[in-house]
């Protein structure tokens, strides 16, 4: 029983990370219709922004987090101007391949600047362990879950309670109509990328201390985030969260009770099954006629 609780606790922490990555992915998709294959590299970049500021730049944690997120916001702007704007009139598939190309650039640029050795990113809660029902968990993992929950709340407030967020949703639904209504479409689109980059940054900063920072961490995260998005429902925020938690739990419980060698088949099998039985996912897609 203690083992089961332990697995659930770890699965939820793992799932939170997937969920965070999935949210960044969903925001971009909902706002711009782009399936961002570089989503995993965004998270990797977030971790390395942290490494650059905190581990190498020796900034105190709070300041380091701020600086890393500012760097990620700047990256979001750059991405919007240099990649999205030139490609936005292209067919969706061209943009997808564009994100693949930029993913290759990001991964190799970070390899060039940071080298291939992994880094250990500090956490404000380093070394603190908690006991929950006989299960051991790091305080940091609890923080990951808490921060994820908090962010979800904030994003919901942004999208449904502020003029800015409502504008973003309007652009997501119909760019032309939003333009006719006098909304600053480009600025709102740019904001979506900035938001996605910063969320990826937070995900990166949170998982750095859990997993070590490593140039190649991006793609595996993206893959699980894709599965999470599908299971939860493409373009749906609550879906991304539910999907992320499901994938995290399925990974650990599957490895424990079914087979550790075939455990990833469970997550991806579930994803394919969901697609076949309920393609709109658990929560359904909010924006139709995309892609």
């Amino acid at each position: 029983m203690a083992d089961f609780i332990q697995l659930c606790v770890n699965g939820l922490a793992l799932g939170s990370v997937y969920a965070l990555a999935a949210i960044g992915f969903v925001i971009v998709y909902a706002a711009t219709g782009v399936v961002n294959f570089a989503a995993g590299q965004f998270v990797m970049l977030g971790t390395f922004a942290g490494v650059g500021m905190i581990t190498q730049g020796a900034l105190p944690l709070g300041l380091g987090y701020g600086a890393a997120l500012a760097a990620m916001a700047l990256f979001g702007v750059l991405f919007f101007v240099l990649v999205y704007l030139p490609l936005r009139k292209s067919p969706v598939v061209t943009i997808i391949i564009g994100t693949v190309a930029i993913g290759i650039v990001m991964q190799n640029a970070v390899l060039l600047s940071f080298g291939s050795w992994p880094f250990r990113l500090p956490s404000p809660l380093d070394g603190i362990m908690l006991q929950i029902g006989g299960a051991m968990i790091t305080a940091h993992a609890v923080m990951v879950v808490a921060v994820t929950a908090l962010l979800i709340g904030l994003i919901w407030l942004l999208f449904y309670r502020t003029a800015l967020g409502i504008g973003m949703r309007a652009v997501a639904q119909d760019v032309e109509a939003a333009r006719l209504m006098g909304l600053p479409v480009n600025r709102l689109l740019a904001l979506s990328w900035v938001l996605a980059a910063m969320l990826a940054g937070i995900a990166g900063l949170l998982l750095g201390p859990m997993w070590f920072a490593d140039v190649n961490m991006g793609d595996p995260i993206a893959l699980k985030a894709f599965a999470a998005t599908i299971i939860g429902g493409f373009g749906s925020l609550p879906g991304a969260i539910a999907g992320g938690l499901f994938v995290g739990l399925a990974e650990l419980l599957g490895a424990s009770y079914v087979s550790s060698a075939y455990k990833d088949l469970i997550a991806f099998g579930a994803m394919i099954l969901f697609l076949l039985v309920r393609p709109q996912g658990v929560f359904g897609e909010r924006i139709q006629d995309r892609g």
Partner: peptide, 17 residues
């Protein structure tokens, strides 16, 4: 005997089992 993938980050299931 338990396996884990090259990109896995959580090994609690394997170790506990």
């Amino acid at each position: 005997m338990e396996a884990y993938g090259q990109n896995d980050k959580d090994f609690s299931a394997q170790m506990l089992s």
